[in-house]
Design a protein around this nucleic acid. Structure first.
Lengths: 191, 191
DNA sequence: TTATCCATGTAAGAAGTTACATGATTGA
DNA sequence: TCAATCATGTAACTTCTTACATGGATAA
């Protein structure tokens, strides 16, 4: 699976320009894959030279032509062929988790900070998932989006429940800190 | 975060050879990062030339010398400096999830197969986590391992509960199939 | 006897990112 | 006025993987 296949896939969901493909990946699928312009534009040119997509130029005032790509029948076949290869294992690189392996070397205040930031990040992702919940075209897309939600939700819960293991605090002081942090919100202590 | 930093980190947990670093990454941390020999060995040589690790040669009969690396005080400082950079976002590439986005294009039997395989994979990972549960050196390492467990557990549960969305089966036929699949095991239908 | 483990290393190649070039429009 | 959005593209660079070279020991 490379950027070429990814573009071919996005285009089967509807015609789009390179720019729009990038946005779609950022907004909808960035949790499972991403790509930069520097790889998308060459991929589209290659797909076109292979006859897997066609391109129509939309002239625009004082701006480069918008090149809108559509998948050809051969392109659709090629995508199916690619997707019929058994998917490789998920590849994850988490600097965050690697950092925590070495938590003993780092100051507790710094650890608290990156844990807080990560929690905020997951919360933001979950909010976005909920905002987009209505946009899903197919059940399959609901499945994929729901998977992301389930994972982030589990990650959030786990970090909240277990951060004391890296911060080296007693459970008691943990609860105390939660109390002061949430003093304007509901106070819930999870079991 | 690159392989160089990763090696430096693993070596702060105890001296090791390149080969042993690779094994340790495979066994303990492969869910968050991995690296091949082709990147580990050059990284170790670079760390040595930078004075961040030292190396002792253990002669071995009819086999290349085993080169055992240890972190120097400067190496430890350098690691702390690296880890003090705020960790970048997690990068995930999941061919599996990308494939499912386009489930509509693929035969249900194939989808069932890759879903089954993924479930088996998660089960295997969870078993391994449990087998290694006793080996954790520090609470921080328990945290990291537990995080992996929490994620795989959530992923497994989600796929089992929602696979009908991609397989296009009715919930009833789903339950029927589970029944026949588990006919020698406990039958539990999750709500 | 066949595969896997042990043990290090290099070179070629794949795949991607970053930075740059160009430049008007629109909203804060 | 400052940043972001729209819009495509190239070139240099980084980083890692794969395949190869070498080869005995050991377990199935």
């Amino acid at each position: 699976m490379d950027v070429r296949t990814l573009c071919l896939g996005v285009l089967t969901l509807g015609e789009a320009s390179g720019y729009e493909i990038k946005k779609k990946l950022e907004n909808d699928y960035s949790h499972f894959y991403d790509a930069s312009f520097g790889s998308i534009y060459p991929a589209l040119n290659r797909l076109q030279s292979e006859g897997l997509v066609t391109c129509t130029h939309e002239a625009q005032a004082r701006r480069p032509d918008k090149k809108v790509y559509s998948v050809t029948p051969e392109g659709r076949l090629e995508l199916i062929r690619e997707l019929s290869e058994p998917p490789g294992p998920d590849r994850i690189r988490s600097e965050f988790m690697v950092t925590l392996i070495f938590a003993d070397l780092l100051p507790p205040s710094y650890l608290a900070q990156i844990l807080d930031e990560r929690i905020a990040y997951y919360r933001g992702c979950l909010d976005e998932f909920e905002n987009r919940a209505s946009e899903h075209g197919s059940p399959a897309q609901s499945f994929v989006s729901g998977f992301g939600q389930a994972i982030y939700s589990a990650a959030l819960q786990y970090i909240e429940d277990n951060r004391h293991l890296v911060e080296g605090e007693s459970l008691l002081s943990q609860v105390e800190r939660d109390r002061s942090r949430n003093d304007t919100a509901d106070i819930t202590v999870r079991g």
